[in-house]
């Protein structure tokens, strides 16, 4: 019996590794190494680049390190404007996507006729690549033969527009296209969240004399709070770093009216060929989105009394 026990006893070195406090870290080490390689290294390289002076139009300056790109950024009105457009774009897409997704999820929550078909229809935009989304909406927004203006012909008092060419309409038009493309992500989360709410709670609320709005306010929303919080963070990041739809539909125009930070970064790198300044703009984008998300997290009430989760 003793010998059997002995045979199964681990050697002390292995037991330190597997039973000691280091075990969890050992388990995540491969993933950490992988992430460090594919995310950490490029980020470090971007930071290094932002202090360098690599611009193809001034090749001689390469290798000159300093904070000159950051000084230039602080004095660059286009960067401030881009930050503002990015923030507007982000807020617009988050509000639009959450509103659209919640409405769609509430509509298709209970099994009604064609609800399967409706769910597929609501998920379909997600399967369309952003580039294709941009092309589709580009055709729809067209001032001359676009379907949107054609439909507006039937609506009194609202005239057709050159949606992507007018300063006032370009950013909202982009936001609508982005919302169409990304709201299914939120929709699928909300649908799952709604399905997890026991029917009995709604029955109890109906007996407790709650009307439909009160049921939404006192049962649905509190149960979805955690999911909404997560989705908003996800959509904030997606909105802030969004590029293809803006780039293809307006390229930052008209006259810079939709030049978000990502478009400005692209233009700095591939139009002006100023890679170091582009890297500096990229760092700004990362810091700005991180601060927005952290600020949002601070606004959220702590989990505890009054929370479902």
């Amino acid at each position: 019996m003793t010998s059997v026990k002995h045979a199964f006893r681990r050697s002390s070195a292995i037991s330190v590794l597997f039973d000691g406090p280091a075990f969890p870290f050992i388990m995540i080490l491969p993933a950490l190494l992988m992430l460090g390689f594919v995310i950490g290294l490029p980020m470090l390289e971007a930071v290094r680049l932002s202090f360098d002076s690599i611009a193809l139009r001034r090749p001689a300056a390469a290798g000159t390190y300093g904070v000159h790109n950051y000084l230039r950024l602080v004095a660059d009105p286009k960067a401030y404007a881009a930050l503002g457009f990015s923030a507007l774009y982000m807020v617009g897409t988050v509000i639009g996507s959450v509103g659209m997704a919640l409405t769609a999820a509430l509509l298709t929550r209970r099994v009604i006729w064609f609800s399967g078909l409706a769910r597929v229809a609501f998920l379909l935009p997600w399967t369309v690549p952003a580039v294709v989304t941009a092309l589709i909406w580009g055709v729809m927004y067209d001032g001359n033969f676009g379907v949107i203006n054609r439909l507006l012909d039937f609506v009194p008092f609202i005239d057709g527009q050159n949606w992507l060419i007018e300063r006032q309409t370009a950013l909202p038009a982009l936001i609508v296209a982005q919302v169409w493309n990304e709201f299914p992500v939120a929709y699928i989360f909300f649908l799952a969240g709604l399905k997890a709410i026991p029917d009995e709670l709604y029955e109890a609320a109906r007996i407790d004399r709650a009307n439909a709005f009160q049921q939404f306010r006192h049962i649905t929303l509190p149960h979805l709070r955690f999911i909404i919080a997560v989705i908003v963070i996800l959509l904030m990041i997606m909105g802030f770093k969004s590029f293809p739809i803006i780039f293809i539909l307006t390229g930052g125009g008209p006259a810079g009216a939709t030049e978000t930070l990502t478009v400005l970064t692209y233009n700095a790198a591939f139009r002006s060929l100023d890679f170091s300044y582009a890297a500096t703009l990229g760092i700004l984008a990362v810091l700005a989105s991180a601060m927005l998300v952290l600020g949002y997290l601070r606004l959220l009430p702590r989990t505890g009394h009054g929370d479902v989760m």
Partner: peptide, 22 residues
């Protein structure tokens, strides 16, 4: 009549308490 107008109260098998409320 909808449940709210029937002047009834009901106790459910699984209690159906609102989990986020005191």
């Amino acid at each position: 009549l909808p449940p709210r107008d029937r002047d009834i109260a009901m106790v459910f098998q699984n209690y159906a308490l609102y989990p986020h409320m005191s």
